[in-house]
Simulated assay, not measured.
Amino acid sequence: MNIEVKTLDSIYPQLEQDLGIDCNLLVKLDTKGFDLEVLASGKITLSKALCSQVEVSFVPIYQNVPSYHAVLQKFEELGFYVTNFFPNMGSDRGLAAIDFDCFMVSKNHII
């Protein structure tokens, strides 16, 4: 099976054209450890986003997953503030802080 991989910046202009408007954009990443690669290839799209959601791991749950520090630093460089963390806890994880969905808002869109 062949899978076509596209970057955020390569697909967003077509979405804008298809929708006929410059939409209010929420970018949700769930890339199983490839967040930094997606962020590097989506700077233009993210500059237009109002907010973003990404899973960050305090304890690596996938091979080669970037640290939460690295992911949050990259989002900060792209102009986002963290607004909240939502724990992803399963029954087999006990009380340890393993991974969280992190919600962020763009500094460009704060009134």
Rank of each mutant, 00 (worst) to 15 (best):
K28T: 06
L39F: 04
V71R: 02
S57M: 10
L46I: 11
F100M: 09
N108L: 14
G42Q: 04
L26H: 01
I98H: 13
V65W: 10
S52W: 10
L15G: 04
L25W: 13
Q14F: 06
S67D: 14
T45I: 00
D22S: 14
I98P: 13
L95K: 14
S41F: 02
L46A: 02
N2W: 15
S57V: 09
C23R: 04
G79P: 03
V82N: 03
V105F: 06
F103W: 05
G20L: 07
L36Q: 04
S10V: 08
F34Q: 07
K48A: 13
K43M: 01
I21V: 05
A49N: 03
D35N: 05
Q14D: 02
E37L: 02
G94P: 10
N88Q: 11
I110K: 13
G33Q: 09
S106N: 10
Q17S: 07
P87M: 12
H69I: 01
T7Y: 01
L72E: 04
S52V: 05
V71N: 02
C51F: 01
I21Y: 03
T83F: 07
V54I: 12
P13N: 00
L39I: 02
T45N: 03
K107S: 15
G79H: 02
S47G: 00
V65M: 06
L39E: 10
E16A: 01
M104S: 04
V54W: 05
S106A: 03
I44F: 11
T7D: 00
